[in-house]
Amino acid sequence: MKSLDELNKIREAALLKVNLRQNNAQYRILVGMATCGIAAGARPVMKTFLDAIDKDQLPVTLQQTGCIGMCIHEPIVEIIDQAGTKTTYLEVTAAKASEIIESHLKQGKILEAYTHVTK
C-alpha cells in the first residue's frame, strides 16, 4: 500500500462485493421466481440483470421474490427506488430486460409501455 489512492481503489472494488449487505442501493430489483415465474422464463431475465449489474457496475441489488398472484403475466419484475416507489414490469423477456436496464436503471426513465397488461 503506497497511497490513499491505492486504498480507495481497493475500497471501490471491494464495495461492490459487500454493498448488497447494506441498505444503500439506488434501486432494488425484484424478480418473481416462483414456479410460475420460472416456467414463464424468469431465469434468463434475471441472468440479464445480473450480467448488466456486473458489467456496468450498477448500484442496484437483485432479489428474487415468490409468486405475487398474477401468474399469467409472469415474468414480473418490480423496481423499487430509494423513496420506495415501485414500478412493476409485466411479461418481461431478456430483450425487454435489456431495454429496462438502459432506460430505467441507467437514465431513470420508466418504460411505461412494459408496465401494462397485454394478454
Binding site: 500500500m1 490513499l4 475500497r11 471491494a14 462485493k17 459487500v18 454493498n19
Partner: peptide, 25 residues
C-alpha cells in the same frame, strides 16, 4: 456479522484503514 473477518478487502470496503491513512498523512 457484516463482513468476513478473514478478508481484509471487506474491511477496507467499509472504510477500513481510512482512519490510519488519514492519521499518517
Amino acid at each position: 456479522g457484516l463482513i468476513n473477518p478473514e478478508d481484509v478487502t471487506e474491511y477496507i470496503a467499509l472504510d477500513g484503514y481510512q482512519a490510519l491513512a488519514k492519521v499518517l498523512m
